[in-house]
Design a protein around this nucleic acid. Structure first.
Lengths: 383, 383
DNA sequence: ATTCGTTGCTAAATCGGGTTAGCGCCCGAT
DNA sequence: ATCGGGCGCTAACCCGATTTAGCAACGAAT
């Protein structure tokens, strides 16, 4: 085995002082407690020479702190997307000298309970409860004992826990703006969700919020969504069939795909119909999945800021730990992290001059409106 | 704040016994140390009623164990591929009641040193040193103090550390076998590396080993590689250009791509030349990247068993911890984890009857051999 | 009646630090 | 000379467990 670790007692002996004195010097309280310069120097020298490092387990026992935070997620560690969340959290924690415990629950409540217990048995200073995709979660009551933050998730019941989430509404606005700024005003279709706020996959917070943003930004520009196809699950094959279906009856000039996997299917459907991206159809999407930069042409997409989410969660958690120490009570705020646009090659300027578009729109040759003012989509109106 | 945790002293008081007795009963040594049935029952009941859980930090201080292992990698947590490695490790550790510290070094030696220190300060029971892609690494000397295992990596200097790696040679054989069993004997080309063992990307252990396996399996069947294109980096664009280059001069019947990203590029190149997968050209690849099941047709590929690698690393680490306790010395073994074939839709049977192939081969119309018995590839022979 | 051995339990030390209370000592003031 | 007080340091307790050494009570053997 290895040689025994150097302890505070070793340092004290080497410096010819008591453990107390050594402890005071090394924790920086020497000045305050009137330790002489001479002794201070001796202790510091001894610690340096012996390469003393305090045993955090011991400190933890005495002070109740472990310089460790627990990162519990449903399955975040596994997905590349969300792996970046861990990376962000890891680095933010490291900046403060903290380590991360990682745990996955697989959505199993019992496992989650066990995991939270195991972490509290190890005296974690705080917890991050992360979700792989944005949604509402039931907060286990075990977390009340320790400062905690929700990451990429909203509490199902009202709790005083802060939450950190991507700013999906603003992302929706960004996506719309990308098309508007390229001059698109007509033939903009949605693939994956919409046109109504209820036309979304089950439990998808992101879908609703993106949709709101899209409709706001388009609405402010006086542009209507020409139509939409909802996908039950946001996988490439659904993007493929939905887009194929669309192309049989419509001639889109631009697609807003609700994520990159759907966009991948859309690319293929367009290819099947002999349409070129972006010359014939511009595409903007969400997530910035790694695949987005592999597709040809490279996909313009509004990125999920996983890394930033992870960092932010740790920042918020430390604030939470701080105020827990202070004894303050405060309600859980919701923090939104901006989603940046990754401009790549899938959006081209609309070649149709603005005035022509406007005239066409006035004549109502596309983007017909139903009685309720909602775009008519293949006979279905928003519910 | 929360109510104080229940301690052993609380349990002892409730049961009307000393802390010692409570400890003995709860650690299962009651029988052995002649504690009466009555007292045993009282302690167990008290612990149950108070919901006692031992404080692992305290146990750690006394026993020097923390029921925790450290998982240090260059950047493993971030990549989806390798995220599964963590998942496997996580679950294997959990099965034994252990938690995982995660750390990323980004290849920075100083950061690595700090991280290993931070973990040892927290009394980890063992370390897993993981690499994102298979390669040789310099083992930091800080790890000698604690049991450790290399994951997806080989030590640069000889060390007594065990290593866990994917069985790439056998994977190469598997890939070749997939084609052979589909009846392919001619026009098999490699994209990404080869044909010689030195025609590989820098530092790529996987390339060399896959190549060995491929050549062995083909050789045993009396089949020669028809040609190869080496890629400096295994990205889709390189697969695209390499395959395009190949198609200008050759008519492959099957491609062995050295990973799925290359295969993705190959698909596109074949499409450019109007060739269909698998009708015109069969493709088999390596890694089972998520993209493999999104491609159309779905890609047949030999999977990197990330999950199993993670599990295996933990198993080997526990064996290592065990023998460290026993005081045994043993040299670091290399453990190989099988890479399973994912049969999907990119390989079709060769439509050429076996006898015709054999006859053609006998006439030497393809697969010419150089003097050294190596296939001639566009004027370059193996070095 | 003393000695010895079990039986069934507990006091006390230990791990490695943090923290409180207070001990000598020297100096200046009364 | 005596007292008070700042200075510089340390003894001792604490955190929550494990573990060693040993104590009382009782019965059996000498």
């Amino acid at each position: 085995m290895s040689p025994r670790r150097v302890t505070l007692a070793d340092v004290a002996k080497a410096a010819g002082v008591s453990r107390t004195t050594a402890s005071l010097v090394l924790s920086g309280r020497g000045r305050e407690l009137r330790i002489s310069q001479d002794v201070e120097q001796r202790v510091l020298r001894a610690a340096e020479e012996l390469q003393y490092r305090p045993n955090i387990v011991s400190v933890g026992l005495r002070t109740g702190t472990s310089r460790t935070i627990g990162f519990v997620s449903d399955t975040v560690a596994t997905s590349r997307l969300a792996g970046d969340m861990i990376k962000g959290a890891l680095e933010a924690a490291r900046d403060r000298g903290f380590m991360l415990f990682i745990g996955e629950t697989e959505g199993d409540a019992e496992l989650e309970r066990l995991l939270l217990q195991a972490m509290q048995d190890r005296q974690v200073d705080g917890l991050i409860l992360a979700s792989m995709f944005t949604r509402t979660i039931k907060v286990p009551k075990a977390v009340t004992a320790v400062p905690a933050v929700l990451l990429n998730a909203l509490p199902k019941q009202p709790t005083p826990l802060p939450a950190v989430l991507p700013d999906e509404v603003e992302a929706g606005r960004s996506a719309a703006r990308v098309l508007l700024e390229a001059g698109h005003r007509d033939g903009i279709y949605l693939i994956g969700a919409g046109p109504g706020l209820r036309d979304v996959p089950r439990e998808s917070v992101a879908a609703v919020e993106r949709l709101i943003g899209i409709r706001e930004a388009l609405g402010e520009a006086g542009v209507e969504v020409a139509g939409a196809r909802t996908c039950p699950d946001w996988q490439p094959e659904h993007g493929l069939t939905a887009t194929r279906d669309l192309l049989r009856t419509a001639q889109p000039r631009a697609l807003i795909c609700f994520n990159d996997r759907i966009a991948m299917g859309a690319y293929q459907a367009l290819d099947d119909f002999g349409l070129k991206v972006p010359a014939d159809v511009s595409i903007v999407s969400f997530d910035d999945h790694p695949i987005a930069s592999w597709m040809r042409p490279k996909l313009t997409t509004v990125a999920l800021p996983h890394y930033d989410l992870g960092r932010k969660a740790v920042d918020v958690l430390f604030a939470e730990i701080e105020r827990d120490r202070g004894g303050d009570e405060r309600a859980g705020e919701v923090h939104r992290v901006p989603m940046p646009v990754c401009v790549r090659d899938s959006v081209a300027p609309s070649d149709e001059p603005y005035l022509v578009q406007a005239a066409r729109q006035a004549r109502g040759s596309t983007g017909k409106l139903s009685a309720e003012g909602q775009p008519v989509v293949d006979g279905e109106t928003e519910g």
